[in-house]
């Protein structure tokens, strides 16, 4: 360790006391906005203000109000009084709520599994060079672009109890003799919703995974095949480990979206038949908006919160770990 030259430095580390001097000649500093904005903190505060105000007003405030509503017996036209956890207890023991609660997990679980496997498959297919590649890639995203409500209507028409084209197809190739009860049976209806959700969400998986695939150098695959790996082994030993970070993020996003899904069920089944296909969001809508029991509706919505919280927490931790590594 070289020491500092003694002649230049009186003390180690700390700055020497600055001698008191006459007022220094300072450049004229006109109090203008531009000068004001040179301060990093002030500029940051100004730039962030619009976003923070809007988000505080329409996310933080509603969240607080949602908690209050959930703890009250408010309904449309009545501000309500504090009732503690009564709404939560009531819903927990309510059989329709229980169905909706289970449905939400069932729906999220299977739809995510399908979206991931099919999306991965599609991404691997799209990752190759072929004629019309750009067009095919672009059109694969269509289900994701088009308003969910509108495309779900098309599905609803495709599985219509009377005029279903799917039934017609299966009948004419001789697979069935009687109509399948797509939407008139609770089990069937749930699986229909899962299929439609998969159809809509899979492109998102495929395209983001494709973007991830494209960052993997082909050299790795060539090296692996020189080492004697077949394509199945190449996928599991090379592609999958490198793709895992992207996959986790995409799955988290999709889980949140699917868990909180509303429009698809609202249009496809409306929660029916006989309230058997409700999700938490659609049931909250039915109780909170259609029936007007704001307190109970808010409580049902809030049942989503712990799950979302855990997922987001997991996600944040994972991102931190990636940054740390």
């Amino acid at each position: 360790m070289a020491k500092h030259p003694r002649s230049l430095v009186p003390t180690v580390g700390a700055a020497p006391p600055i001698e008191v001097a006459l007022p220094r000649p300072r450049p004229a500093a006109p109090w203008r906005l531009t000068r004001f904005l040179e301060s990093e903190r002030l500029l940051a505060a100004l730039l962030l203000a619009p976003a923070v105000v809007l988000l505080a007003l329409f996310i933080a405030y509603p969240f607080v109000m949602g908690v209050w509503l959930a703890l009250s017996d408010a309904s449309v036209g009545s501000p309500g009084t504090f009732v503690g956890l009564r709404n939560f207890v009531k819903e927990w023991n309510d059989s329709i709520f229980q169905t909706a609660f289970q449905n939400t997990f069932f729906y999220t679980f299977w739809a995510t599994i399908f979206k991931l496997t099919l999306g991965m498959w599609l991404a691997l297919l799209l990752n190759r060079q072929f004629r019309g590649m750009r067009l095919v890639r672009a059109s694969m995203l269509l289900p994701f672009i088009v308003p969910t409500v509108l495309s779900t209507f098309a599905w609803r028409w495709m599985v219509d109890p009377t005029f279903s084209v799917v039934n017609w197809l299966l009948y004419s190739i001789g697979l069935i003799t009687n109509k399948l009860p797509f939407l008139s049976d609770g089990r069937w209806a749930m699986w229909c919703a899962i299929v439609v959700n998969t159809w809509r969400g899979m492109p998102f998986f495929a395209i983001t995974l494709l973007a991830g695939l494209q960052t993997i150098s082909p050299d790795l695959h060539e090296a692996a095949s020189l080492d004697g790996a077949n394509s199945w082994q190449r996928f599991w030993k090379v592609t999958w480990p490198l793709l895992k970070p992207v996959t986790i993020v995409v799955v988290v996003f999709s889980v949140i979206q699917t868990f909180a899904d509303f429009q698809l069920i609202y249009v496809l089944t409306g929660g029916g038949p006989a309230n058997s296909t409700h999700l938490l969001a659609t049931y909250a809508y039915q109780i909170g908006v259609a029936t007007g029991l704001l307190g109970e509706g808010a409580a049902i919505s809030l049942f989503m919160f712990p799950v979302l919280f855990v997922v987001v927490w997991f996600q944040l931790r994972y991102l931190r770990r990636l940054e740390g590594a």
Binding site: A15, I18, R24, P25, R26, P27, A29, R35, E38
Partner: peptide, 19 residues
Amino acid sequence: TSGEIQIGNRVVNDLPPKD
């Protein structure tokens, strides 16, 4: 953090780069 910089006999500590 502390100390002083002069450019052409002018203390520039509080001047933005453009000035």
